[in-house]
Write a protein that binds this DNA or RNA. Structure first.
Length: 743
DNA sequence: AGCACGCCGACT
DNA sequence: GTCGGCGTGCTC
């Protein structure tokens, strides 16, 4: 029934993943079942020369486009929408809030396979489990078939089934051995879904740990609020037992027959948590992050959508996964900047999670040892409820933080004599040392001792970083590389000298100073190889490593129980950034790195080398802790009318031409001034902190208002006009609502 | 984002 | 005389 009663054709208004702030109208397909026509269904439509997948937004009777120009929907792909009405409302909200085209927002919510129009019938990946015979057998009996023996041991070490993906992650060549073990009836194909454990069957596998009163209070607070919206900020230092709190709350949610979405900032953190969850819960757990194949992600998405799986563990992009029976959203390490998407649809997974929780009427649990200032502010204004875990669980004591004044001290490649002595003492006690330096490579600068020439990137406003191991100079911003040169290209005579410190360089001096000790360097360069990080972590935890040296990567999640001394080699570099977020990020980094030490019975110490021993950020943090720092920092933000006491949106523009981005933003600023009525400040345009990157010149324009509605009202009128601006066609531009870094 | 249309340089 | 460079504009 394509015709309406009045003789007009029914119009399908759809969203398509193109960077255009507009929906498209189509004629209804030749034939369709009107009962199936619900917002959110996927359609195949002709678009320009190509066919595209579109998402139905609404059906209307009239189109502003001449009827003759309308094309017809080619095919209806779904019998019913894959997203609930509430999740569709969430996407509409996100599109409006982030001023991003609805089609692209829809696209972000779907896994690639479904975005491309694939059918929802996707083969789930196989899982294998031990048979009773497999559980009972002594693996030594298989010593003549070592490959099968090791596979068997892998299964026996876990109490649960393993998926094809997990096996591949462990060892690429598992298939033959698994097949042989299946033939010997030691392994079997696990039930396609472990979910649906009948009520009589237990959801949990092993018993929960004993909780302290604060943990218990947190568990009770969230559990009492199940079935209604509320945001909880679970603040607990490393080792305070946040994960145990999560697991006990999850158990209650599962017992209610509901699902849980757990978001983490990084892929590297998923295996640990997955393992703990699998040890605890019998229900099936889906995983979703960018290192998985499209099929695996689509599979995780669909099993959650159908309610065949109870827990989803994923990164930022898993936020939009539909839940048949939503019960709870957990977002761990909520302060982490990785939750903010930094390109395209620039959403904050934390903020969208809160809105989703509100729409679904379920609680949202945010966890961190170092909550974002914004979240603490939301506690102050009663939007979030604080759940505090002040103590370290068990007997572990908190590490002692101290500043090491290195002014006028003799330094050897960034290491003061005092620090070297401390490292020696620690190693003598057979304990591990962890050194943190947030700069990879050998040295950040190559300078000519003769004429002052510096190796610069030809495409960015940045110096090339020396990577001695690879014999190259590399730009850390655009990735461009060139061979490491020996002679100055400018004066031809001068000697080229590395200036500054990177992890490679510190590693080299450590090898000299602590000859005979095992040193492991953990940074993006040393862990590029698949499985390299896991390998190193295993070595470290087995105690075969004495000194661990690394970047950022060390600050997140991994625990090093035998580390008793942590040193932050260069804390000062974080003190002088132009970005107002820098002190917050630095304080979080210090506390997070500190959390790596002193977990077991051995107390930990944290030494920070500084030339600013009186710096208020450092002294407040050390003497009074993160919360006092946060109070001070929030007070400063308030005085300066910075977020969270004001609201920002940053318009960025870049182009090959040096002038166009500035001209474009000037035109926008001029337009904006016509509409703002003084409620919103228009700051700039100014050159971006890195004015040129990957060959493109970059400018930015900041909008800031004390009232969010004012800011959004301005952006609402501005965006369509920006799109039509003639200068807009000569630059690449993007809007970033609530920017977290001003680069 | 794709993809075609369109007006200026080195090739059979 | 054409092939093709990527600037510009459109997609219901």
């Amino acid at each position: 029934m394509a015709k309406l009663q009045n003789g007009n054709e029914l119009i399908f208004r759809v969203a398509i993943a193109v960077p255009v702030y507009r929906l498209f109208d189509y004629l209804a397909p030749e034939q369709f079942e009107s009962a199936h026509i619900k917002p959110g269904i996927r359609l195949e439509v002709p678009f320009g020369k190509a066919k595209k997948i579109a998402f139905l937004v609404e059906c209307v009777q009239h189109s502003d486009v001449a009827i003759g120009k309308l094309k017809r929907v080619e095919r209806i792909l779904d019998e019913k929408p894959l997203l609930s009405t509430k999740d569709l409302a969430l996407l509409h909200w996100a599109s409006r809030y982030y001023h991003h085209p609805l089609g692209e927002v829809f696209s972000a919510a779907f896994p690639v396979a479904l975005r491309q129009g694939k059918s929802v019938v996707i083969q789930a990946e196989k899982r294998y489990a031990l048979t009773d015979a497999g559980k009972a057998i002594d693996s030594e009996l298989l010593k003549r078939t070592p490959k099968q023996k090791s596979v068997l041991e892998k299964f026996q070490a876990h109490q649960h089934s393993l998926s094809e993906a997990e096996l591949s992650e462990w060892n690429e060549n598992w298939r033959t051995s698994v097949k042989q073990l299946v033939d010997r009836q030691l392994l079997q194909l696990a039930a396609s879904s472990e979910f649906g454990a009948s009520a009589s069957e237990s959801i949990i596998r092993n018993t929960a740990l004993q909780c302290n009163p604060q943990q218990q209070a947190a568990i009770t607070a969230v559990c009492d609020s199940l079935g209604q919206f509320g945001v909880f900020l679970l603040e607990g230092v490393t080792g305070s037992g946040k994960t145990e709190v999560y697991m006990q709350i999850i158990r209650t949610v599962l017992e209610r027959g509901q699902q849980v979405l757990v978001l983490l900032p990084e892929i590297t953190l998923t295996p640990q948590l997955e393992e703990r969850f699998r040890q605890r819960f019998t229900v099936s757990i889906a995983i979703s992050h960018s290192k998985l194949t499209d099929r695996q992600r689509a599979c995780a998405w669909l099993t959650m959508q159908r309610g065949e799986c109870s827990i989803l563990l994923g990164t930022r992009s898993a936020l939009f996964t539909p839940l048949k029976n939503p019960g709870l959203i957990i977002l761990d390490e909520e302060h982490d900047a990785s939750f903010k998407q930094q390109e395209g649809f620039r959403f904050s997974a934390r903020d969208v999670a809160v809105v989703r929780g509100k729409l679904l009427n379920i609680p949202v649990l945010l966890g961190s040892a170092t909550p974002a200032l914004e979240s603490l502010h939301n506690v102050d204004n009663k939007r979030y409820r604080l759940l505090h875990l002040p103590e370290r669980a068990g007997d572990a004591t908190a590490p002692v933080l101290q500043l090491l004044d290195i002014r006028n001290k003799r330094m050897q490649e960034g290491l003061s004599e005092a620090l070297v002595a401390e490292i020696h003492k620690t190693l003598a006690r057979n304990e591990q040392v962890l050194l943190f330096l947030n700069r990879r490579g050998f040295a950040p600068t190559l300078i000519c001792h003769g004429c002052g020439w510096v190796a610069r990137c030809g495409r960015c406003d940045a110096n090339l970083v020396i990577h001695y191991d690879e014999g190259i100079l590399r730009c850390h911003h655009c990735g461009q590389e060139q061979r490491l040169i020996k002679h100055c290209p400018a004066c031809k005579t001068g000697e080229l000298t590395p200036l500054g410190l990177g992890t490679e360089r510190v590693e080299k001096v450590l090898a000299e100073l602590f000859a005979g000790k095992t040193i492991v360097r953990l940074d993006r360069d040393s862990t590029q190889r698949k499985g390299a990080l896991e390998n190193y972590l295993q070595q470290i935890n087995q105690g075969s490593v004495d000194i661990i040296l690394g970047t950022q990567m060390l600050a997140k999640g991994h625990h090093f129980p035998n580390v008793t001394l942590v040193a932050i080699l260069d804390v000062d570099s974080g003190l002088f950034s132009i970005d107002f977020h820098a002190p917050e990020k630095l304080a979080q980094m210090i506390v997070q790195v500190s959390g790596r030490a002193g977990r077991a019975e051995k107390p930990g110490r944290v030494i920070m080398q500084t030339r600013q021993p009186e710096h208020p950020l450092l002294t407040t943090l050390i003497r009074q802790g993160y919360n006092s720092f946060a109070k001070t920092a929030l007070a400063e933000r308030k005085d300066a009318s910075l977020p969270p006491f004001s609201y920002q949106a940053l318009l960025r523009a870049q182009a090959l031409d040096a002038e166009m981005p500035k001209l474009f933003l000037h035109a926008v600023a001029e337009l904006a001034r016509e509409y703002t009525k003084g409620h919103t400040d228009i700051l700039g345009p100014v050159a971006a902190p890195m004015a040129r990157r990957a060959g493109l010149y970059r400018y930015q324009l900041l909008f800031q208002s004390g009232k969010r509605p004012e800011l959004h009202a301005l952006l609402n009128v501005l965006m369509p006009k920006i799109e039509k601006l003639k200068q807009a066609k000569k630059v690449r531009w993007s809007l970033d609502v609530d920017p977290v870094d001003l680069y």
